[in-house]
Simulated scan of single mutants.
Amino acid sequence: MNDAAPPRRIWLCADDYGLSPGVNRAIRDLIERGRLNATSVMVVGSAIGRAEITALQAAVASSPRCSIGLHATLTAPFRPLTMHFQPLEGGMFLSLPKLLRWGLLRRLDPEIIQAELMVQLAAFGDLFDRAPEFVDGHQHAQLFPQVRDAFLRAVKQAAPNAWVRQGGRRQPLARRLGMPKALLLDVLSTQFRRRASRADLTFNPGFAGAYDFSQRPDFGTLMGQFLDGLPEDGLIMCHPGFVDETLVSLDPLTDHREHEHAFLASEHFPRLMAANRVTLF
Score class of each variant (00 low, 15 high):
Asn2Gln: 12
Asp3Thr: 10
Ala4Thr: 10
Ala4Pro: 00
Arg9Cys: 13
Arg9Met: 14
Tyr17Met: 13
Leu19Lys: 07
Pro21Arg: 04
Val23Thr: 13
Ala26Thr: 00
Ala26Ile: 00
Ala26Trp: 00
Ile27Phe: 11
Arg28Cys: 15
Arg28Gly: 14
Asp29Met: 02
Ile31Tyr: 02
Ile31Asp: 09
Ile31His: 05
Glu32Thr: 10
Arg33Leu: 15
Gly34Thr: 10
Ala38Met: 01
Met42Trp: 05
Val43Leu: 13
Val43Thr: 13
Val44Glu: 08
Gly45Phe: 12
Gly45Ser: 08
Ser46Lys: 13
Ile48Tyr: 05
Glu52His: 04
Thr54Gly: 10
Gln57Pro: 00
Ala58Met: 03
Ala61Glu: 08
Ser62Phe: 00
Ser63Thr: 05
Pro64Ser: 09
Pro64Glu: 08
Pro64Phe: 03
Ser67Cys: 08
His71Leu: 03
His71Trp: 07
Ala72Val: 05
Pro77Ser: 05
Arg79Thr: 15
Pro80Val: 12
Leu81Asn: 08
Thr82Asn: 05
Thr82Tyr: 06
His84Leu: 04
Pro87Lys: 05
Pro87Asp: 07
Gly90Ser: 10
Met92Gln: 15
Leu94Lys: 06
Leu96His: 11
Pro97Trp: 06
Lys98Tyr: 00
Leu99His: 09
Gly103Phe: 01
Leu104Ser: 07
Arg107Gln: 15
Asp109His: 13
Pro110Ala: 12
Ile112Val: 14
Glu116Thr: 01
Glu116Leu: 05
Met118Arg: 09
Val119Ile: 15
Gln120Phe: 09
Ala123Leu: 04
Ala123Gly: 04
Phe124Arg: 01
Asp126Pro: 00
Asp126Tyr: 03
Phe128Cys: 09
Arg130Glu: 14
Val135Pro: 03
Asp136His: 01
Gln142Gly: 12
Leu143Tyr: 06
Pro145Asn: 06
Val147Arg: 02
Arg148Met: 14
Ala150Phe: 06
Ala150Glu: 11
Phe151Leu: 05
Leu152Ser: 07
Arg153Thr: 12
Pro160Cys: 10
Arg165Leu: 08
Gly168Asp: 13
Gly168Gln: 12
Arg169Leu: 10
Pro172Cys: 10
Leu173Asp: 10
Arg176Cys: 12
Gly178Ser: 04
Met179Ser: 11
Lys181Asp: 12
Leu183His: 07
Leu183Ile: 03
Leu185Lys: 00
Asp186Tyr: 04
Asp186Phe: 02
Val187Leu: 14
Val187Asp: 10
Ser189Gln: 10
Thr190Ala: 14
Thr190Asp: 07
Thr190Ser: 09
Phe192Met: 14
Arg193Ser: 14
Arg195Ser: 10
Arg195Trp: 03
Ser197Cys: 02
Ala199Lys: 01
Thr202Trp: 09
Gly206Thr: 03
Gly206Ala: 07
Phe207Thr: 06
Gly209Gln: 08
Gly209Ala: 09
Pro217Ala: 12
Asp218Val: 04
Gly220Asn: 11
Asp228Gly: 07
Ile236Gly: 01
Pro240Gln: 08
Gly241His: 03
Val243Arg: 08
Thr246Arg: 07
Val248Thr: 14
Val248Asp: 11
Asp255Trp: 02
Glu258Ile: 00
Glu258Cys: 01
His259Ala: 14
Glu267Asn: 15
His268Ala: 15
Phe269Lys: 04
Phe269Ile: 03
Pro270Ile: 08
Arg271Gln: 15
Arg271Leu: 15
Leu272Gly: 02
Met273Trp: 05
Ala275His: 07
Thr279Arg: 13
